[in-house]
Computed example of a mutant assay.
Amino acid sequence: MGSRIHGEAMPTHLRQATVESTVSVVGFLQGVLRYCAPDRASHGWARMCMYQASDAMDTLGRLTGVIAAQLADNGLNRQAIQHLLRAEDEHLRTAQPPQLPEILRTSHDLAYMPPWLYDWVQRSVAKVLLLLRQVVKESQDDRNEDWFGHCLYQLASMLDELGRLITAIAAVNADSMSHDTLTRYQHLFQQRSRSRMPDADDERYLAGLLGRPGDGEATTWYAIGLAQAGRKERPLQRGSPEGRVLHTLEALDAALRPFRWDDARGRPLDHTRDTAIIYLDALTAVEGEDDDDFPPLYWLPLHEQAAAAAAATVIFGAVPLPGPAADQMKDASGAEGHR
């Protein structure tokens, strides 16, 4: 295999797809964290977390599928592709989650996300963020004959991580939500098994990325591929949304590089989780809040706002903070200086 068939590095058109998928997934992960916050309880944390996490999973699935389509286009047989996708071990989301008999699950009990589930959410978001960074690194290497195997391994791990997380959220809410509701909140109508990859839409997406003539039928994924192909020669600006996301992931990678980041089960350690969440909050802070009447990250405790602002300063330079959080950040800096 290797460079004889798939090139010495990821092709340019797939690099563009990777960048744009990465930006979308990071946005969905920010949404997952945002809807965990107590002030959004009335919006339905379970519904919105399942929406956002499912969209992240499906975006990763489409990137996985178009890479598989590229391998098939290069002549790799379906059995070999399925092996690379680890399709036989995948964890899909489901409207019939396993029962959790020892947990209270009435609507009243679930007005807010249970603390143990919040920890699970944070660790899953951290893991996906770190694996996403690895895919970006693999895609950008100028000489990487095994780019496809490495990227597909990380993508499959992210898909399974999100599948397990969404299943856990569904299981917690199984007694208070109907089968149809769980189906709708998890976007099961758009879920795809890796055993079906690459499918016709993956092939159309690839055709669009390559600028090949369409098959006579205007399709969404062909149009998306064409649009992305038109952006691939444009230099990436550091201050652009794409540049901020990639720069945040690069900074997170550098911050954690000296440390082991997971335990024997592959779960992020506390330090890893905390750092990843702080860096994602920092990105949220510089992007601005969705309601101009409130300061950035107003839903977080002041010490978490200050930690995010400190990280944003490291990553991007100064970032505005509301008064109390700014004071807390100064107090923390002063205490550090007197040690």
Rank of each mutant, 00 (worst) to 15 (best):
D89H: 11
R194G: 05
L302M: 01
M158D: 09
A69V: 09
S139A: 15
F148K: 01
L182P: 02
R143Y: 15
Q140P: 02
Q30M: 11
G211A: 03
L132A: 02
L71R: 07
A251M: 15
S139Q: 06
R40G: 00
M50K: 11
Y279C: 10
G214Q: 04
P97K: 11
G266D: 09
L236E: 11
G266V: 05
V319Y: 04
L300F: 02
L249G: 02
A87K: 05
G44L: 08
A174S: 13
S124G: 12
K232A: 14
V23G: 02
A95T: 01
G211M: 02
Q134Y: 02
R339I: 08
S107F: 06
E336H: 07
T59K: 11
L302S: 04
G31T: 03
D119P: 02
Q52R: 12
H91M: 08
P235N: 03
A335H: 12
E242Y: 01
L162N: 04
A282L: 07
D293A: 07
R164A: 06
T18R: 00
H338M: 13
P98Q: 07
P213R: 10
L100M: 11
A170L: 01
A332Y: 05
D119T: 07
R257C: 07
Q237L: 14
D199H: 13
D202V: 04
A207C: 12
R184D: 14
K127E: 06
Y51E: 10
A95V: 01
P98K: 08
G75C: 09
S3L: 13
P213T: 05
L92M: 15
D202T: 04
P38G: 03
A174H: 01
A126P: 07
S124K: 10
P98H: 06
P296S: 09
R40N: 08
N144W: 13
T12F: 14
A17V: 02
D160A: 05
L130H: 11
Q134I: 08
R194P: 03
S178K: 06
E8W: 15
E287D: 15
S139T: 09
G239F: 14
R184L: 14
L280M: 10
K232E: 15
Q140Y: 00
C49W: 00
D270C: 04
V128P: 03
V32W: 01
G239C: 12
L297D: 06
D215V: 06
D274H: 05
A310K: 12
D73R: 14
M1Q: 09
I169N: 10
G65C: 05
G230A: 10
Q305I: 14
L33T: 08
N77S: 04
W116H: 15
D291K: 00
W261K: 03
G27A: 05
F294Y: 13
D263R: 07
L321A: 10
A200M: 11
A306T: 10
V136M: 01
F294M: 09
I169C: 12
G225K: 03
H43A: 15
L283F: 03
A95H: 07
